[in-house]
């Protein structure tokens, strides 16, 4: 007989309250995690969405990409040697729209590569968030440093850098704007190990992300919030399972007295914990994915199903550990003590 299920059926309210707490806490963690990832995407989606590989910048730049200059001969040499390699530059700047209103953007120019938008001379492709600011395909945009004009060719999804929408410009336009022939970076996709190159320093994608000003500090704070939430949630789970077990000490004692195995009582507790936690987490996953669909477009919210499932597994493991630790009382409970305590 499944006594775990019988208890849930009879004490619906008690288990509903426990399930609600697990649901609310995990839902909160998913939402905060979505916001943290959203901010992270907002800061560096342009880089994060690239495949793994190696970034090269000049050693003299002291790990600051916008001070880097890779001279043309070195750059050409690298691009010739590595078929998929791409040279690129990123500069924060402004675009003036047709009404003369300034829009903050990150200009990105690159050599031909399927990893970056291909734009012709005088054209610009913008992150889709610019569309919400009223910019349309065909609009003419200008910049004080650029002698020409750009016509908006289209929009790209999720192309953000340093919390600004990316504006992909042609490499010649970039050179004109910043009066330089040298690009800042060379990216070699798929390269696991950095190749030695004179005057260049190599960074993995993760290392390069941390050279972006404020990225590390921001991510550390956000990750701290998420992990604190996970730890606090775990403690909450353990406390609630503990409280439930304390309430049932007398019952466990009587069951042991009539000969129920301690392992059966643990199985009963684990079954209940798994049932409640899985149900609450499934609801949380569904609600958080639903929230992703209805969250305002301007809100930096990025929550993949993979992330929620990973967090769910962590919650399950924490819940299991919490329940098991609190279940130590089951092992300790003396049948005689429960009998002498009176009616359960």
């Amino acid at each position: 007989m499944n006594i775990a299920w019988k208890e849930i059926k009879k004490n619906k309210v008690r288990f509903l309250i426990l399930g609600s707490i697990i649901f609310l806490v995990s839902f909160l963690t998913f939402i905060i995690s979505g916001l943290a990832n959203g901010l992270s995407q907002d800061n560096a989606a342009l880089i994060k969405d690239l495949p793994d590989g190696q970034f090269y910048m000049s050693t003299a730049a002291d790990e600051t990409y916008n001070l880097s200059k890779i001279e043309s001969p070195i750059q050409d040499n690298m691009l010739n040697e590595k078929k998929d390699a791409v040279a690129l530059s990123i500069q924060m700047g402004f675009l003036n729209d047709q009404n003369g209103k300034q829009q903050s953007v990150a200009f990105v120019a690159s050599t031909d590569s399927k990893l970056f938008e291909h734009v012709k001379d005088g054209e610009v492709i913008l992150d889709r968030s610019m569309k919400e600011k009223g910019i349309k395909v065909g609009d003419v945009l200008t910049n004080n440093q650029f002698s020409g004009k750009w016509i908006v060719k289209g929009f790209a999804d999720d192309k953000k850098f340093s919390h600004a929408p990316v504006a992909f410009v042609n490499i010649e336009n970039y050179k004109d704007m910043y009066r330089t022939d040298a690009m800042q970076l060379v990216f070699v996709p798929g390269e696991e190990k950095a190749q030695a190159a004179a005057g260049l320093q190599a960074f993995s994608k993760k290392e390069f992300l941390h050279t972006i000003p404020s990225y590390s500090a921001e991510q550390m704070s956000l990750n701290m919030i998420v992990w604190f939430l996970v730890v606090i949630s775990g403690m909450l789970f353990a406390i609630f399972f503990y409280m439930m077990n304390v309430q049932k000490i007398g019952l466990y004692g009587i069951l042991k007295a009539i000969g129920v195995k301690t392992s059966t009582l643990f199985k009963m507790m684990w079954t209940q914990m798994l049932f409640i936690t899985v149900l609450a987490l499934s609801l949380s996953v569904a609600f958080s994915q639903g929230f992703k669909m209805i969250s305002p477009d301007g809100m930096p919210f990025h929550l993949t199903l993979e992330t929620t499932l990973q967090l769910s597994v962590i919650f399950l493991v924490i819940g299991f550990i919490g329940a098991t630790l609190s279940g130590v009382q089951i092992k300790k409970v003396e049948p005689l003590q429960a009998i002498q305590q009176g009616e359960v």
Binding site: E7, K10, L251, I258
Partner: peptide, 28 residues
């Protein structure tokens, strides 16, 4: 425990029934 479960029966001062089981389920 095995002997308590199969060879002994207990009646206490209080009934000590399992609160979430029906009379029939207590016996099952």
């Amino acid at each position: 425990r095995k002997i308590r479960a199969s060879k002994f029966g207990f009646i206490f001062q209080f009934a000590h029934l399992v609160p979430f089981l029906t009379v029939e389920e207590q016996l099952t």
